[in-house]
Design a binder for these strands. Structure first.
Lengths: 217, 217
DNA sequence: GTCTAACGTTACCGATCGGTAACAGGTTAC
DNA sequence: GTAACCTGTTACCGATCGGTAACGTTAGAC
């Protein structure tokens, strides 16, 4: 309805300002900050005000980048899922074609991550396990949008572990895959209570090996 | 300083009103309601107003029974822990002296509970796993009081499983106990995502048996 | 009858929640 | 220059949070 008709080139959206490397776009800073705070303190415990100010901006700028807090949470979950698969692929990558060794590498990396701090300067002393799984505790049951994200994610883990079990020629690949998943999820869950690798996590590699052996006769 | 001196008998506190069986004391109703709501929706998602009105009373009566919400949460956690040990002892009771059968019974009961609904008339379709573990996601890291409750609880689980492993003559009882704990905790955790027993929980009995066998040579 | 503990009710407090309106620079492309 | 976009700022909204003050009612113990 305005005087000037259609924009000149709708395909070439969003140029302007390459966003200096040391100070990224507001939106990216907010998402980064949110990922840290949500993971450390939980979703409900962190308000948009706190995220915005921690990101060096304010609430109004927040709502210019995200329609609602739920949308930010959705991106947080997607982001954490991406990080997870990146980790997964990097761990199993060197042992392509050797599913048994891949499983071992995954388990070894799990206990390694339990020991390591999240970020060097971060105030979080130890890992708090699975971001998506923890989020599931706080997601209301009528929120299908967020619930589905977690469900699909956990289902993908299940699928991949079953696939690995199948590739290594297990007698009951579904059972082995699920059993391995229980070990991994259990190690994430207990990490909330036992700091570092002082918990049952340390048993995961031996347990996984025993399970694999049992399923290969 | 008042006219009347010391109370007549401070030991015989709190008589009055046996609290009819169909309508218990306000305090008990509140605690019961809080246990349901906290477990179903999480701790942060449920306000004291909602608990009070759901229990058929109001917020003022709530604060006459509990000094703060945190105190209610502490009682909620203690209550759930009590329920858990009751379940535990009932499950392993019939197989006293047979630690191997006791572990099997525990695992079987875990998948059985995953299928069963929490309460018949309850709106909660399926179990949401470990109350204490889920609470740990929502407890702020500086709240030692609540954090310690969960930590001691999980530590007790660990001790009991290691003890069972020792009693059955496992080669590495600590490793076997921790491995069994990972299976159990993993089944609690995944129950948040997979309704009923559609998740990896179904593999827990076979997995536990394989682990036990492996540790008995 | 009287005293007292248990409970209901209404109103309120400061703080924070998620979310919005309106205005003021600042930078960049054209 | 100028239009378009990004960002910061202040103030505000209704709702809810945990928690409290003050007053009324009921019922059992003595």
């Amino acid at each position: 309805m305005s005087v000037k008709a259609a924009p000149p080139d709708s395909a070439k959206v969003s140029r302007l300002a390459p966003a200096t490397a040391d100070r990224p776009r507001v939106r990216d800073r907010i998402l980064d900050t949110a990922c840290e705070l949500f993971y450390r303190h939980g979703i409900r415990a962190v308000g948009v005000d706190a995220i915005a100010s921690e990101a060096g901006t304010n609430k109004m700028s927040f709502y210019r980048s995200f329609p609602s807090k739920d949308d930010l949470v959705a991106e947080y979950l997607a982001d954490q899922e991406g990080e997870y698969w990146k980790w997964w692929d990097e761990v199993i990558g060197p042992y392509a074609g050797n599913p048994r060794r891949q499983v071992e590498a995954l388990m070894e990396s799990v206990v390694d991550l339990a020991r390591r701090k999240i970020k060097e300067a971060s105030g979080c002393k130890t890992s708090r396990g699975c971001a998506l799984g923890n989020a599931c505790v706080e997601i209301p049951e009528d929120n299908q949008r967020l619930g589905d994200i977690v469900h699909k994610y956990k289902n993908e883990i299940r699928k991949r572990l079953r696939k690995l079990a199948r590739e290594m020629g297990a007698k009951e690949p579904e059972v082995l895959g699920d059993a391995l998943m229980l070990l991994m999820e259990g190690s994430y869950y207990t990490r909330l209570t036992f700091p570092g690798n002082t918990g049952p996590v340390t048993a995961i590699t031996k347990a996984a090996r025993a399970l694999v052996d049992a399923h290969l006769t």
